[in-house]
């Protein structure tokens, strides 16, 4: 991980802005911005109350974007997400009422609580970047960034996302609990005011879209690309992995690496970027074999192991 590397100035102010609300989660904030810039989506997996929602709201506020929240429940219907066409008697025709998905930054809370049908309505929108309701395809607003959360503890009455759908998410992150000092800071900050209400945007939507364009221009050298491919290839032949990373995973990793390099103020990617991002990009894209699961090995571990064994290209 590139330690102490200066962030891109704009990104730096964004992260600082978010940190006003979310204490001690600089890395998660940075990675969320990486996903946003890479036009990907984030799956946050953690217990309730650690600040997932707050993070998304802070991010949305920082970019003065339209924030929408969908609370997934078992009885939620696809149309509750996508919106419906209602008959307008005055005009004598059906009129489209946009659903909550028609926003810039969307928090899909507890995505695993709803039925697969409803889940796939959202996931399709994420993948296509557009929505088809009643035969009419409507483009989603730009930027379009989904941050879904799921609770890893409760399984009663949940519909876990199938692996094939998991790889629609660019990154899978964990929030984790704050440290004692951080939690003290949280208490101090929220004692008198609600910090989120005082947050001011630091970047316009237009600028954000411009940044997204710039990210695509970050140079990824052949050696770094090859490094990515080698890591992905190794995941396919690893003894503990049942299903390795798909080519979509390689693409995702490269896009994420571009954004990551940009966030760190560089216009070229490093193997370090690949190493830093691989656990977040690849871990949810592999399926472990049963024996590995029984041995208590996590996907993250295996990705780290692959990285430590893959030779880093250091020469011409």
């Amino acid at each position: 991980m590139p330690k102490n590397e200066e962030l891109h100035p704009v990104i730096g102010t964004m992260v600082e802005n978010i940190e006003k609300v979310i204490v001690g989660k600089r890395e998660v904030a940075t990675l969320s911005i990486v996903a946003l810039l890479a036009r990907g989506h984030v799956l946050l997996e953690d217990v309730p109350g650690v600040g997932k929602t707050m993070l998304v709201r802070a991010l949305a506020k920082s970019v003065s974007a339209q924030f929408k929240r969908i609370q997934f429940t078992p009885d939620l219907l696809p149309s509750d997400v996508t919106g419906v066409s209602i008959y307008n008697p005055k005009e004598g025709q059906f009129e489209y009422k946009p659903g909550p998905v028609m926003g810039n930054i969307i928090l899909a809370d507890e995505i695993n609580r709803t039925s697969p049908r409803t889940q796939s309505a959202l996931l399709e929108a994420m993948e296509e970047g557009s929505l088809t309701v009643d035969g009419v395809t409507r483009p989603l607003p730009r930027p379009f960034f989904v941050m879904a959360t799921q609770n890893p503890i409760e399984y009663e009455g949940t519909y876990p996302l199938p692996e094939a759908q998991l790889d629609r998410f660019l990154l899978k992150l964990n929030m984790g609990y704050p440290s004692i000092q951080e939690e003290m800071d949280i208490l101090n900050k929220t004692e008198k005011v609600v910090p989120i209400d005082q947050l001011q945007p630091v970047i316009t939507i237009k600028d954000l879209l411009l940044l997204q364009e710039k990210v695509q221009e970050v140079y990824v050298d052949e050696r770094v690309k090859r490094y990515i491919v080698e890591i992905v290839q190794r995941s396919r032949s690893h003894e503990s992995i049942y299903l390795g990373v798909s080519p979509r995973g390689s693409v995702a990793l490269m896009k994420a690496v571009q954004a990551y390099a940009f966030v760190h103020g560089r216009d070229f990617a490093l193997p370090d970027d690949v190493q830093s991002l691989a656990p977040y990009v690849l871990a949810h894209r592999i399926i472990l074999k049963a024996h590995a699961k029984f041995d208590g090995i996590s996907a993250g571990h295996i990705i780290s192991e692959i990285i430590s064994r893959t030779p880093v290209p250091v020469q011409r």
Binding site: P271, D272, V314, Q315
Partner: peptide, 25 residues
């Protein structure tokens, strides 16, 4: 490139070896 490579070799001979999976940074 060559000089840096030589430097790496010297460091290696000093017992300060770069691991395969270690990035330059």
């Amino acid at each position: 490139v060559k000089a840096y490579d030589a430097l790496l070799r010297h460091l290696k001979s000093c017992g300060l070896k770069r691991k395969e999976g270690q990035t330059l940074r």
